[in-house]
Simulated scan of single mutants.
Amino acid sequence: MKIIVTGSLGNISKPLTKELVSKGHSVTVVSTNTERQPEIEALGAKAAIGSMENVDFLTKTFTGADIVYAMEALNAGVFFDHNIDFIEANTQIGKNYKEAFEKSGVKNIVHLSSIGAHLPNGNGILAFHYNIEQVLNELPQDVSIKFMRPVGFYYNMYSFIPTIKSQNLIIQNYGGNEKEPWVSPLDIASVIAEEIEKPFNGREVRYIASEEISPNEIAKTLGEAIGNPELKWLTVADEDLLNGMINAGMNPKTAEGFVEMNTARGNGVLYEDYYKNRPVLGNVKVKDFAKDFAKLYQSS
């Protein structure tokens, strides 16, 4: 099949591309970075270099494809850009995708959504996933869409490193012994590859998770990996976390979104639909990720 993979060679798209190529599919990888082209081609895929803001480029790239894997790929650096509304910018990319799907005639879409996409509000920074699911659901009914809803990515834990180094603590506005789901990008890529080869039938939702583990267990696992078995997870007030993020230079609106998202994690609202549609857990566990965490921790 002819498959388009967005997201360049990121944490999900690179292993996904490798797997799809190994299975004999014709894969085109969309990237904004011309320097990625040789690496993309080395994987056995074609490169399409252009912007997610350019509907004509997307339309041309998508035309003739059997399946498009679509994700919004703003990098984490925009969290600190005070001129970008993170939710609105991502939502606009979703609107660009919709227009390009309509113009190109694509009938089968796998969209990387998120935990919390079932909530119209109260999901903080994840609100754009709800927005985009609504936008894509406006496509004609002969367009089949698989909404992939992974939970929190393991690599988001890298953001814990500064306070571990400075205060010997993981600091968030939720915590304790209540388990919550986390996921490895490798497990996400595996599930997407699986869904690409399964029949498409209307609109479907699938949650993706690797392990259900509590904040205190995460602190213990990461602490042992970095040689600090006494590492603790400290729960602070929303206002304290918000001020800490803003003082670190984060866009205040983005920071508010993170705080609200974490509140929804702590009170369980974020996971209500997940537990109603609980997936089989993937293969990569926090102990596996902790090895990569320790390497970055030691080198940073």
Rank of each mutant, 00 (worst) to 15 (best):
M1N: 02
I3P: 03
I4S: 11
T6A: 13
T6Y: 05
G10D: 07
L20F: 08
V21P: 00
V21N: 07
V21R: 06
S22C: 00
S22F: 00
K23Q: 13
K23N: 12
H25N: 06
S26A: 15
T32K: 13
N33P: 07
T34D: 14
R36Q: 14
Q37A: 15
P38R: 12
E41G: 09
E41H: 08
L43Q: 10
G44F: 09
A47C: 10
A48M: 02
S51I: 04
K60F: 07
F62M: 08
M71R: 09
A73R: 14
N75G: 14
A76N: 15
F80I: 12
D81G: 08
H82N: 06
I84Y: 09
D85I: 13
I87V: 10
A89V: 10
N90K: 15
I93D: 12
G94D: 07
N96F: 07
N96K: 11
Y97A: 02
E99Y: 07
F101R: 02
G105S: 02
V106Q: 04
K107E: 07
H111D: 06
S114T: 01
A117N: 10
F128R: 14
H129F: 13
N131I: 03
N131M: 03
N131F: 00
N131K: 06
E133W: 11
Q134N: 14
V135S: 03
V135P: 01
P140W: 05
S144W: 05
I145F: 02
K146C: 06
R149L: 08
P150T: 01
G152Y: 15
S159P: 01
P162W: 01
T163H: 10
S166W: 03
Q167R: 15
L169C: 10
N173C: 03
G176A: 05
N177I: 09
P181A: 08
P185Q: 06
D187M: 01
D187Q: 08
D187W: 08
E195H: 04
I196L: 14
E204H: 15
E204T: 15
E212A: 13
E212V: 15
I213V: 14
P215I: 09
P215A: 04
E217R: 15
E217V: 04
A219N: 05
K220W: 10
E224R: 11
A225C: 04
G227C: 10
L231V: 00
T235C: 00
D238A: 07
E239D: 11
D240Y: 15
N243P: 01
N251F: 05
T254L: 04
T254Q: 01
E260T: 14
M261Q: 07
A264T: 12
R265H: 12
N267F: 02
Y271A: 13
E272F: 07
D273F: 12
Y274P: 03
Y274T: 12
N277T: 09
K291S: 02
A294H: 11
K295Y: 09
S299F: 08
